[in-house]
Structure formats: structure tokens, C-alpha cells
């Protein structure tokens, strides 16, 4: 069971309070009707399935209720960082440099 830092509560808490919510930084088009079938398919179904650092979303569902983003290494299961929804993608090299 992992420990996860909620960027809204600023607390590091047991995984049981959280729910996984899929890959992060996959934005829904502002005007979906202008999106091609292929792009809409990719938006719906195509994911990076990363081995290593993975940008993903979690929700502090049994806490403050907020969705937020995280970078987690899918090999070690370790969180490299968590950050608020809407914040820029953190730079991977800085993160992995710190963590390894």
C-alpha cells in the first residue's frame, strides 16, 4: 500500500484514501465536433502504457475530493511527485535525477 501526497491537503496519506483515475494530461478538446475520428479515437482509447515514469491522475476521494496529477514510476511503484490539476507537466529529468 502506497503513501500518496495530496497536493491540496498537503498531507501524505495512505493509498486507501485515494482512487486511481487514469493517465494524465489527456485534455478533452474544447470543440469536440472539430476533432477527426482518428483523433477522437486516440483521445478515448490510446494510452502511453509507460514502463517507468508515468503521468497519471488520482483523486483524494475519501478526503478533500480533488483530482490531481502525479508522476509515478510504474517499475518501482514509487511516486516521483504529485501536483495540482491544471499545473504544468513537471520536467522528468529533474524528477528522476532527484529520485535515483
Amino acid at each position: 500500500m502506497l503513501l500518496i501526497r495530496c497536493p491540496y491537503c498537503d498531507e501524505t496519506l495512505p493509498e486507501l484514501e485515494f482512487a486511481y483515475a487514469g493517465e494524465a494530461h489527456i485534455a478533452r478538446a474544447l470543440d469536440p465536433s472539430s476533432v477527426t475520428d482518428e483523433d477522437w479515437r486516440d483521445f478515448l482509447f490510446i494510452r502511453s502504457n509507460a514502463k517507468g515514469p508515468h503521468y497519471e491522475r488520482w483523486r483524494h476521494v475519501h478526503g478533500c475530493g480533488r483530482f490531481f496529477n502525479a508522476v509515478r514510476d510504474t517499475v518501482t511503484d514509487r511516486f516521483l511527485t504529485t501536483y495540482k490539476a491544471g499545473e504544468a507537466k513537471p520536467d522528468l529529468e529533474t524528477l528522476t535525477g532527484d529520485a535515483r
Partner: peptide, 13 residues
Amino acid sequence: LNMMEDYLQTEWS
């Protein structure tokens, strides 16, 4: 409710 919160918080904040 989770789905609604998801859209509200992350797409239509």
C-alpha cells in the same frame, strides 16, 4: 458523482 466531479474539476473548472 465521480464522473461529474471529474469533468467539473478537470475539464470545466
